[in-house]
Every structure is written in structure tokens, then in C-alpha cells.
Design a protein around this nucleic acid. Structure first.
Lengths: 356, 356
DNA sequence: TTGTAAGCGTTATCAC
DNA sequence: GTGATAACGCTTACAA
């Protein structure tokens, strides 16, 4: 029964008492605990913590001291229940192991964190049912949703957009915000490059059938080829994977084209691996171009010529779009356009059999 | 004022009425709406939806029909507030763009989804302050936390583990569950391989200073080298990136070793790129081994010899560990050990100058 | 400026 | 087996 060696003030003692009570009930400190310690009403605590200025400086300081003392952390669930805002943002991607989405995730995560939001990620595994399920699961918990390379039909997307703020990546639906690579710009650079190398006959290796962006690339390539008087064929669809690219080679050689443009780098890499396996020289016998400039494209030999778009930027933009509902009504359908730039490496070379 | 063309029952009409009311208040259907439509008490709705069996078959059916009719989705925030369980799991990684973490994320996401949980991801960008902040931010919203290659001190980890269920990846702290690669097994395979090729003098390219797993690898390599009578030196620390690997080359050549073991594949790849730039032949002049077998390691030329661990499995295990609090007290400190297997490719070859 | 009190949508604890 | 009713922790009119 000895006095404490160091004299402690009422505040500290009371804090100990409250801490003990908190521990006993096995929970976290609440605004009621803070209120008690600071000697004010819980609502005052709420105000002091959430809306600065609305409270007298001295009370605010007492409240903050008490909150710090008890290591108070507001319960996001309770707050969300009341306000309807959860502070979370959803990101749905087709395939987490696809290098393309890494950058999207990173950009989205950065922007979300910077804005004080927490990013929730779901993977659809390229299946539209999975995707719909993921969206359904995420929707009640998030303030906004980013759909990257979605496979959902436009009607479903509009349904979702009606319920929550939505932004699209690599997809476009009227009335929904989105960010797209500048496909025509990238395609024009490819076609100019191939034309300069003497290629007159080119194949496009399509991505998945349900891929909106693959269709868009094909449209642009078709137009660019016509415009330049080049022969163009579409081959596919293909899974957007290395395996998908390997499977494509036979049809490519059979088509006798001198250059191929793959839907993405993974398909391009698979095609090149398969070509190496059967002794087909690249670029001597066949030039190959990809899209995305993923990690690995400059490691492969020969290094892959590809169209780079800043997907990290896409992630950032998309997040800020879902957050920025402040955009005027005229901006609703606006699609951010990502610059695309052709990175020329070793997988493209002079056409082996220039005609004419 | 005409009768509806198709006769509709009371249920459907009532549903319309309720739907109108919901729309008017601008919210989502609640169990009160369901209760009204089904003609039961809200608490009965809750029971029917959450705990099957506790309710009569007929009421359960009526409730489910009403819920389906109104497209009811339980509000996760309200549920979390009451139960204390949020249905979310946190995953904190050092660097999202590091290929190693992709697999971890995917495995974690799969396991979490399979268990009915939603995965929340945060990135620490290799900074322990960022990491602490991320953990602090996530903690109140999640039921459990997976820390992958954490940079936090053991004391902080234990603090977190006291508040929520925690599992570690590539890190070990007494009293906290975790999953680790079987480092000695992987190292033994490397050393046997190098010894068989005639290498007698080897360098280890360390990872970041704060990396627990880098220290662990060094310890194992040191022991294995001593045991085999090989010369071993540690060089570093290095950033776990391609740039970090490039920076390492000068010290490596200066050390006159005939083989290097890099902390991870990125460092190994950077080293090889730099070697190619200065005309140093690999593996003729220098053998290189990495860890992780990331995407890209088999694309580079020569392809990288590396120790593969199933990081996707690591993600799955870690998630199931945080979920499985059912584990007995004796299992608390148990660390799952991931099999490690050496994948021999082209970056290792006979020692250029076998001594003796 | 601060206190009072009524929710937010669930689940949990009682009764009946 | 089902119905009242009180939490959960916070925000927000409305009063004072």
C-alpha cells in the first residue's frame, strides 16, 4: 500500500481507470471513453475529431489529448453505417497475375491512399460470372468502383453505375467515366514502323472474344492497314497468355504474313517462344509487335517491340474519376485518353520478302 | 383507370409499394422492408437469412422469397458493427510492382474469397513508417492481417498480433504464425550445384538491410559454404531491384568470385544486364543464381538459375492461418515451411578457373 | 460552443 | 419458432 513514486495528475489516473474498463470489456476505445476522460459529451468528441473549427480551441485540445492518451481510433464501420460512406474503393481486375494489372493496381492504390481511401481488390479470373459476383460482393462496402478490362455487358455496367460511382479502364460505355489508351495513336506508330520496314502483309492476333479493347485495336489496325494499302488479317481469339501466343504460331505461319501485331505482350512472347522452339527466326522471318510493354518484354531475346501505355497512370486516373463526382454533368461521358508510344526493340526488322 | 392486364397477387403489389418507398428514401432494401413484405418481424428475417435451421421451413421460404423479390443485400457495415467481424482481411506488401508479391496477392485473394472474405491490400513501399501507417489504417476494418516481408520491428508486430489475428510471410517472430520458404533446403541445392560445377569462391548479394529473409539466406549460405570448404563473401546491402543488381557488378568482379547468389531474381537480372553491357560473359566468366523464379527469369538470356518457392501457396497458407484461430495453443508459433526447389537454367556453368 | 437524443441496419437477448 | 427491444459506435439535427 505505498504511494506511487511519481505524482500523477487526475487525468493520467482516470485514463488508467478507463483503460482497465476497456480491457475488461475486450474492445477498443470509443468516443464515450474519450468523452469521459475529457469531461465532455460524446457528440463533442465526434465534432472535435471530425470537423475542426466547430469547437472551442480548449475543448478541442482536451479531446485530442484524451484521444491520444487512449490511442483512440474511430470505428470505420460505425461511421460508415451512419454516414453511408465507407472510405473504401473497389478495384476489379481480370487476372492478378497479368503483369498489366500490376501497374494498374499500384497506381490505384497510390491514388486511393493519397485521398484517404482504402483499396479493396477482387479478381474475376477472366470470367464474367465471377466478375459480377465480385462486384455484387464489393458494392455494399465501397464508395466507388474501378472496373479494369471488364468483361461485363454494358447493361450490367450501367446498372452498377446507377448504384455507385464507377470508372472503367480499357473499356468504354456511354455515360460511364473511363480511361482508355489512345489506340489509334499507338496503332499508327506500329503501322508506320512496319511499313517503313517494308512489310505489306500483317496479321493481328486477337485477344479474348469478350475483350472490348481487343475489338477496338482490331478496328484501328484494320483502318490503318487499309489506309496504307497493306494486307491485314485477324487471327484468333486467343487467351491473353503466353500459352495463347504459343498456340497462335501455326496459323500465323500458315497465313504467310511477314509481321504480326499481338493483342498483348504475353501473346507476343508466347508466339516468340514457340517460334524459337521450331527454329523460326525473329525478326528475320517474322516481325512481332505487342501491346503494354510489360516487365519481361525487354528481357526476352530479341527484346519485344511494343506499344507502351502508362497503366499506373490509368489506375490513378480511374480512382480520381470515381472520387471526383464533382465533375460537371457535361463531363460524365468523358474518357481520359492515355498517351501511347511505340517502343522499338529487336523483334521487328525488315520484311523478309518485300513484294513489288 | 383500367385494371392491370395481368392479375397480380398481393405479394407482388406490396413489393411494388415497398420498392417505391425504398426508391423515395434513396437507399437500399433493409431487413425491415423484407420483414414487412414477408409479414414477419425483422429479427426473424435476420435469423432466416443468417442462421438456417433456427427457423420454420415455411417462414424461411417466405423470407427468402421476399429478399429475392427486393434484391436484398445485407449491409456489411451494420453487420460488422454488431458482430465485430468485418469479413475483410488485410494484406500488407512492401512493393506491389515486385513480381514476387503478385503470386502472394493472388494466392491470398483466392483463399480469402474461397473463405467468404474480402481482401484489402496496402503497400508500404519498403518503408517501415508507411507500413506502420497502413497497418494502423487497416486494422480497425479487418478481421485479420497478413504481413508479407514486413519491415516492422518484432515489438510492433507483436503489438499488432495482440489486437488482431496476424500471419507473417517471409518473416518470423516468436509467438506469431507465419510461413517461410525452406531456406536451408534451397541453399543446399544451390551450393551442391555450384560445387559440382567446380566453383570454390562465391559471393552473396544481400538484399535490403532491414530484410529479415535476406539475413536468413546469408546465414544459411555461410553455413553451407563452410561445410563444403568453399570461400564465401557477403556484398551489399542492395535495393531488391534491377537497379540494385546493376550497381552490384563492380564489387562482384572486384571480389574475383566465380559465382554469385543474389538475394532475389531482380538483383540477379540487374547484375546480368550490367554484365552484358560491359561484355562480361555469363556463365562463362561468372555464374549467377537468384531466388524466387519470378516471371521474366526464364525470358532473360541466358535464362536464370533460381530457387523457386510457391509464393501463391504462401499467400494461401498465410490467409488460412489468420482465419484459423482454431489452431491449438501449441501451434501458435508454428511456421509453415514452403518447399524450395532449384531450377537450373543457363546462368550457371563450370567455374572458369577451378583451383587446386 | 456544447449537450440531448434520435437514428444508421444489423444481431443478440430476452420473453412469450 | 417468433416477436419485442436493446445494443454496436458513430454522426447529426435540434435545443439550450
Amino acid at each position: 500500500m505505498s504511494e506511487p513514486p511519481v505524482p500523477r495528475d487526475r487525468f493520467a489516473e482516470h485514463a488508467d481507470e478507463i483503460r482497465a474498463r476497456i480491457r475488461e470489456r475486450g474492445g477498443a476505445p470509443t468516443i464515450y471513453d474519450i468523452a469521459e476522460l475529457a469531461g465532455v459529451n460524446p457528440s463533442t468528441v465526434s465534432r472535435a475529431l471530425a470537423k475542426p473549427g466547430r469547437i472551442s480551441a480548449t475543448t478541442a485540445e482536451r479531446v485530442h489529448a484524451a484521444a491520444a492518451e487512449l490511442e483512440f481510433r474511430a470505428n470505420p464501420m460505425a461511421r460508415a453505417l451512419q454516414t453511408g460512406r465507407t472510405g473504401m474503393l473497389g478495384l476489379v481486375v481480370a487476372d492478378i497475375t497479368n503483369p498489366v494489372v500490376f501497374d494498374i493496381i499500384r497506381g490505384a492504390e497510390q491514388e486511393a491512399t493519397a485521398a484517404g481511401y482504402t483499396l479493396v481488390i477482387a479478381e474475376s479470373q477472366e470470367s464474367s460470372e465471377n466478375e459480377a459476383a465480385a462486384v455484387e460482393r464489393l458494392l455494399p462496402s465501397v464508395d466507388g468502383l474501378v472496373l479494369a478490362t471488364t468483361r461485363m455487358p454494358a447493361s450490367a455496367i450501367l446498372d452498377v453505375a446507377r448504384r455507385k460511382s464507377v470508372a472503367l479502364i480499357n473499356h468504354s460505355v456511354d455515360g460511364v467515366r473511363g480511361v482508355l489508351p489512345d489506340v489509334p495513336a499507338g496503332v499508327d506508330q506500329i503501322m508506320d514502323h512496319l511499313a517503313a520496314l517494308g512489310h505489306r502483309s500483317v496479321a493481328y492476333l486477337a485477344g479474348p472474344e469478350s475483350s472490348w479493347i481487343s475489338a477496338r485495336r482490331w478496328t484501328a489496325i484494320l483502318a490503318a492497314a487499309e489506309q496504307r494499302g497493306m494486307a491485314i488479317v485477324e487471327i484468333g481469339p486467343h487467351a491473353p497468355t503466353i500459352a495463347g501466343g504459343r498456340d497462335a504460331l501455326r496459323r500465323v505461319t500458315a497465313s504467310r504474313v511477314t509481321a504480326v501485331i499481338a493483342f498483348n505482350d504475353l501473346i507476343a512472347i508466347g508466339l516468340m517462344q514457340q517460334a524459337a522452339d521450331i527454329g523460326l527466326a525473329i525478326p528475320a522471318a517474322l516481325s512481332v509487335v505487342g501491346f503494354d510493354d510489360i516487365f519481361g518484354s525487354e528481357l526476352i531475346v530479341p527484346a519485344l517491340t511494343t506499344v507502351r501505355t502508362d497503366l499506373q497512370l490509368a489506375g490513378r486516373w480511374a480512382v480520381s474519376m470515381t472520387l471526383g463526382d464533382a465533375a460537371g454533368p457535361g463531363e460524365e461521358t468523358d474518357a481520359g485518353l492515355l498517351p501511347a508510344v511505340l517502343v522499338v526493340r529487336g523483334s521487328t526488322g525488315p520484311s523478309p520478302a518485300p513484294r513489288g
